[in-house]
Amino acid sequence: IVGGEFTEVENQPWFAAIYQKNKGGSPPSFKCGGSLISPCWVASAAHCFIQLPKKENYVVYLGQSKESSYNPGEMKFEVEQLILHEYYREDSLAYHNDIALLKIRTSTGQCAQPSRSIQTICLPPRFTDAPFGSDCEITGFGKESESDYLYPKNLKMSVVKLVSHEQCMQPHYYGSEINYKMLCAADPEWKTDSCKGDSGGPLICNIEGRPTLSGIVSWGRGCAEKNKPGVYTRVSHFLDWIQSHIGEEKGLAF
């Protein structure tokens, strides 16, 4: 996250930290963010996993404010299922249908348990988003500047505003790279944004009075660059896909 502030996971208790396992016993490497949408399911971005789409290669933590270190109250999960969108594809700049689902379970077969640092996030009503111009929260362990070599160890969050499709499709923004299954969000002064390493993490907007997973960090040109908003998978347009894979509607936080 460029700009914004450091935070505790209690302020974003649906945030999931997804790590890729390493060979030879070295500790896993942070890969991407995600969001807990039901006790057994985390939503993230397909582009995080497309090069290594094997569930055995990943481990998921909930309740982490600090990356790669022990956090009191954290829970660790293996990935029981890894589902990437079947129509995921990459353009020169854009990712399309950039959504993935991870079914999680502990080594003893449990799903997530609620606590001060672990909570589900609501899903939006079908085809419903917050109005353009609304403030939404982004969260992640991603870079604080695109040119940084190191990633921050502590969780960060910030606030960006939803940008209309009309605006985001302007030639000096992203032109035809944008479609209606994506959401653009940016800071009017271009001082804060999601960045490399924040992929898969949540864009949380208030819809009908509830914090709601409106977007999933997907792509963008640079970070906090003028006229180049962050682009997010538009969750409200993937509810049928989510439901078809998770199955039971009652387990979902609509």
Binding site: R116, T120, I121, L123, A253
Partner: peptide
């Protein structure tokens, strides 16, 4: 404003233990 109800596992979507920023 509507609020989510507590599910069978004790989750209440979108509810923070800390005060929301909205």
């Amino acid at each position: 404003k509507p609020s989510s109800s507590v599910d069978q596992q004790g989750f209440q979507c979108g509810q923070k233990a800390l005060r929301p920023r909205f």
